[in-house]
């Protein structure tokens, strides 16, 4: 499902910048990110730890922890500005129009509240349902996410469920109000591959049934291949590449994306003696180099990369595949 170009995107983020207050002054963690998600579209956000992928999504919901704040940029959802919206309004969006599935179901479910009550809460708050109706709907939701014996499970506490079950409960809560947008932050990272496959199939299925948009945050390029319509690759708080999913895997353009793809062993290709790897480590926020943040690890780095920050520019005629790299852009302009 790809969005029609003429329609304004459901989620439109421009120049989002997030800073952490540290001892040495504010450190920029998310550095002017542009994102858009169309209606019915699934966007994959890929990056390694510390690249700012989770903070970006938390900042949209204004859920940033203390000492971390949005310093610049706008985020529009369905035509409304999430950053300036009164908190009262925003509460209706959180869990209502935008469902959120957090990474760790162990810490994001309330340990002293029964599963049923946690599922009913958004329904009663957002949909003004009566308690008995909400419980009926909660049973439907648990059945939808594939939890056996949903009636009895409503009375269970989180600790009585396995990790996979808890994650499904998180997804059921995220989906409770049939949101227009589901944001899932590494929802399967803590799970086994067999459970991961179950959850991915479930989300695909629900997306087709409900026609919702999905933002799926992950570090797993293999997982996102079968799930997303479009993928954005983040490195050190910036978007380095943004492309339709087939285009990204067929023609990865940024050296970081290429390096990442090359360093993942797969089940299909012949096992090589050594994996190709990216040398060095990602820079810490606040200690990022001037110029391109990937330059110190980049095999193609030139003089200009140390000085200037490359812009995210189209690299194909359609303009749907963009990369932020001097080397790639130069090659294309010369051609």
């Amino acid at each position: 499902m790809t969005a029609r170009i003429s329609e304004p995107p459901l989620l439109d983020v421009k120049g989002l910048t997030v800073e952490i207050d540290g001892r040495r002054g504010p450190a920029v963690v998310v550095d002017g990110i542009d994102l858009h998600v169309g209606r019915g579209e699934t966007l994959g956000i890929v990056g390694e730890s510390g690249c700012g992928k989770s903070l970006t999504m938390l900042s949209l919901m204004r859920l940033l922890p203390n000492k971390i704040r949005v310093s610049k940029g706008t985020a529009r959802f369905d035509g409304r500005d999430l950053q300036t919206m009164p908190t009262r309004e925003l509460r209706k969006v959180r869990g209502g129009d935008i469902g959120f599935v957090f990474q760790d179901p162990m810490t994001s479910l309330n340990p002293v509240m029964r599963i049923g009550d946690q599922l009913c809460e958004p329904l009663i708050y957002h949909r003004k349902m009566a308690k008995t109706d909400a419980r009926k709907r909660a049973v439907e939701l648990l059945r939808l996410v594939g939890i056996p014996g949903p009636e009895e499970r409503l009375n269970a506490y989180p600790h009585e469920l396995s990790g996979g079950m808890r994650q499904r409960v998180m997804i059921a809560i995220g989906l409770a109000c049939e949101p227009k947008l589901l944001i899932a932050d590494e929802p399967t990272t803590a799970l086994d591959v067999t459970i991961q496959a179950q959850i991915v199939d479930l989300v695909k299925d629900l997306r087709n049934k409900l026609g919702m948009s999905v933002v799926w945050i992950t570090h797993d390029l293999a997982l996102i291949a079968g799930l997303a319509d479009r993928v954005v690759v983040l490195y050190a708080g910036t978007v380095v590449e943004d492309a339709p999913v087939d285009e990204l895997y067929a023609n990865p353009s940024h050296p970081y994306t290429r390096g990442l793809l090359a360093s993942i062993p797969t089940l299909s290709d012949a096992p090589a003696a050594r994996l190709s790897s990216i040398g060095g480590t990602p820079p810490e926020p606040g200690r990022r180099p001037a110029g391109c943040p990937f330059a110190p690890r980049c095999p193609l780095a030139m003089d200009i990369c140390q000085r200037d920050v490359p812009k995210l520019e189209p690299i194909s005629s359609g303009g749907s595949h963009r990369a932020a790299c001097f080397a790639v852009n130069k090659v294309l302009k010369a051609a």
């Binding site: 396995s162 591959v193 496959a197 991915v200 199939d201 293999a222 291949a225």
Partner: peptide, 26 residues
């Protein structure tokens, strides 16, 4: 079943792949 659950970095194959998904938990 375990092998069929492993995702691969190929969008085309991933979309068309028939997975043998294990039901339930361990």
């Amino acid at each position: 079943a375990l092998l069929s659950a492993v995702p691969e970095t190929d969008p085309e194959r991933e979309r068309n792949r028939k997975r043998q998904i294990l039901q339930g938990d361990v």
